[in-house]
Design a protein around this nucleic acid. Structure first.
Lengths: 213, 213
DNA sequence: ACCGCCATCCCCCAAAAGGCGTAATCTCAA
DNA sequence: TTGAGATTACGCCTTTTGGGGGATGGCGGT
C-alpha cells in the first residue's frame, strides 16, 4: 500500500485526483492540500511516500515547496503534475529534487502507474518531457553554440576553449605550436566577436552558454 | 511502418534482435551492422528512422558512432541498447545525441515500444536510467559549492562570483564599495584556496563545478 | 590574553594581458 | 581577379594582474 499526498490549488482537480487515487488498488491518498503553505505542515506530519505537486500554486510556487519539503523529508518522492511544459519550469523542478514530471493531460492510468514507478526507483515523465530532458544534455554539450552564434573561426574557438581551461597566452601558444603574438591576435578577434573586453568575460560567456556540460 | 537499423557486435544478440523486430507489426529491420565502421556506410545509405546502438563495440565506441551518424543524419533517432548503466556512459551517450537509453535486460516488448515511442517524440529510457538522468540535475545544482569545498569565506566567494561575471578588480571594488587593494588581497586568498594561479583558472573552476546551475 | 581567521587598506615590482597598427600568406567565393 | 577573412606574426604602449611584503581592527575560541 503506497501512501500519496496531493498539493493542488484547484478544488475540482484536487478532488478528482483524490477520488482517482482512492479508487486505485494499492494506493491511498492521505491528504489533499490546497496551498504550498498547508503542505508544509500537513505533509511532514502524515509522511506520505509520494506527493503529487502542482507547479502553479497561488502564493508559493511548487518548486520552492518541493525544495522545502525535501529538506525535511529527504526520502519523499515528489512528482510534478502540471499543465506547463516550459523547459525552464521543468529543469527548475528537477533541480529542486522532483523525481518525475507529468502533464495533467496524461491519462489517469499513467498517473497511477507513475506513482508506483517512482516508488520502485523510476523517474516517470510524460514522453515529451523526457525528450526535453534528454535534449538538454545535447544542447548543453554543443560547444559550438558560442562559436556559431558569434561566428568564431575554428582557430578562434580552439583558443577560446583553452582560455577557459585557465591557460595563459603563453601556454596556449605552446599548446598549439604557434607564436605568443598570434595568440594575442586571435584573442583580440575573439573579444571583438563576443563583444567582451577581457579574458575573464570571454570565459564567463563561453562557460555559461554551456560548453562543458 | 517504421524502419530500424541495428548496430551490435555480438552475433547472437544481433540476430535475435533482428528477428524480434521483423516479427513485430509495423516495424522493419533494414540492416544489422556488426561494427561502428560498417554502420557508418550502411546506415546513411539505407536511412532507417531508428537505430538501436550498442555501446561497447569492438573498435570505435557507440558514443562516437552516434555522434558521427547524427552529423550526417540529423533526424535519425538513436536508441542506446546496452548492459551498462554507468552514469558517465549514459551522459556521454545523451550528449552525443542519443534520444533514449535502454538496458538489454529490458523485456522485448519494452524495446519494441521504445522504438515507436522515440518516433512519436518521446525519449524512452529504462526506469533506473531515467532516475539517474533526473538525479543528475539535482546533483549538478547542489554540487555547486566550490565555496564550501575550499573553505572560502563569505566575502571571498562573493568576489569569486563577481569575478566569474567577468568584472575587473576595479569593478568588483566599486560594486562592493571596498578598495581596489582589498579586492586584490581577497583574490590572493581565493587563488591560494582554490590552488590556482590566475583569475581565468579560478573562473573556470568555479563555473565548471556548477555554480550557475 | 593569545592565536587564528576575516576584512580592510597600503606599497613595490614583475609578469601578463589588452589596444592599436602593420603585414605576410592562403583560401574561397564573388 | 579582386576582395574578404583566416592564420600567422611583430612592435609599442598602457592597463591589469599576481606575488611578495606589512598594517589595522574585529570576532571567536582556548
Amino acid at each position: 500500500m503506497i501512501t500519496v499526498g496531493l498539493v493542488e490549488d484547484n478544488a475540482t482537480v484536487r478532488q478528482s485526483l483524490q477520488e482517482m487515487i482512492e479508487a486505485a488498488p494499492g494506493l491511498r491518498c492521505v491528504c489533499a492540500c490546497a496551498t504550498a503553505k498547508e503542505s508544509m505542515t500537513v505533509i511532514p506530519r502524515l509522511r506520505p511516500e509520494v506527493v503529487l505537486m502542482d507547479l502553479h500554486l497561488a502564493g508559493e510556487s511548487g518548486v520552492t515547496a518541493t525544495e522545502r519539503l525535501l529538506e525535511k523529508l529527504p526520502d519523499l518522492h515528489v512528482l510534478i503534475l502540471t499543465v506547463y511544459k516550459d523547459p525552464e519550469e521543468i529543469f527548475k523542478a528537477l533541480k529542486a529534487g522532483a523525481k518525475g514530471y507529468l502533464l495533467k493531460r496524461a491519462r489517469p492510468q499513467q498517473i497511477l502507474d507513475a506513482i508506483t514507478e517512482v516508488c520502485s526507483g523510476g523517474a516517470p515523465m510524460s514522453s515529451e518531457i523526457a525528450r526535453l530532458v534528454v535534449q538538454s544534455f545535447r544542447t548543453s554539450a554543443t560547444a559550438g553554440n558560442v562559436r556559431e552564434e558569434h561566428g568564431l573561426s575554428h582557430r578562434e574557438s580552439e583558443i577560446l576553449a583553452l582560455l577557459s581551461e585557465g591557460l595563459t597566452n603563453r601556454d596556449i601558444a605552446a599548446r598549439l605550436g604557434i607564436s605568443f603574438e598570434t595568440v594575442r591576435s586571435h584573442l583580440g578577434h575573439v573579444y571583438e566577436k563576443l563583444r567582451v573586453k577581457s579574458r575573464t568575460e570571454a570565459v564567463s560567456k563561453y562557460l555559461k552558454s554551456g560548453s562543458p556540460a
